[in-house]
Amino acid sequence: MRKRTLTLPNGKVVTEQRSKVPLICAILLVFIIVAMRVTHFSFRTLATNGHQFFVILGAMFPPHLDFLNRVWQPLFDTIKMSFLGSLLGALVAVPLAVLSATNIVKSKLLSGFFKLLLSIMRTLPTIVMALIATFIFGLGTMAGTLAIFIFTVSYVGKLTYEQIESLDMGTFEALESLGLTRLQAFRYGIVPQILPTYLSTSLFSFEGNLRYAAILGYVGAGGLGIILNEQLGWRDYGNVGMILTVLIVTVGLIELISQTARQKLQ
């Protein structure tokens, strides 16, 4: 870009640094227009047809209360899947996080390998993992648990190794100098520092997983998604409304508990 200069009355010359904002706005605008073309986005359709969205939403109310009996079992399945997946995932994430942390593992190759592994695991969409798992383990909660497990390992693993890498290693060295082994130094120097964040991350991931687990049934991986898919297919929106109400209340309650716990950890 062309540089402009400003001359002050006393003769000093300042090279003006132009703001990049107009350029960024222009690029964004171009990309928005391109993306609108590609996705066939049209405000007109939205204006003329938008009310259809509320037709279905309206049909969900009032929810069919008598459907409640059929919601419990899938709901429990969803909670089980997300709890088990999160718990096991959070546990397995620890060694992987330690192996990925450059300040603990001296070999760049080794830590880089585990970092890449965690990255790729995180990148694979959970729904794809769940679908693959149903082919291997059959339809049901096992597949969902596995998908959630893999996502939790990658998520908690990444945040934990970032936490470990940001630690002050002085304590670790001090303990090593006292004659502790590396493992002992880790236990007494590192663990107390990362434990609160680690537990908090795990709880947070459990909250998110609960939401995710509700979808996984859609590919046959157990839980609320199965009946959600079924009732949506039959266009029985009153029942869908019931399922969503139960889901919202459950997620709300668990979030409340988990948030209180996380605040205490901090």
Partner: peptide
Amino acid sequence: TIPSLVYGLMFVRVSGPGPF
């Protein structure tokens, strides 16, 4: 909390299937 799939189905009613 409402799963994205549910929104997806609702919006397919608005715009028809596709990226929109």
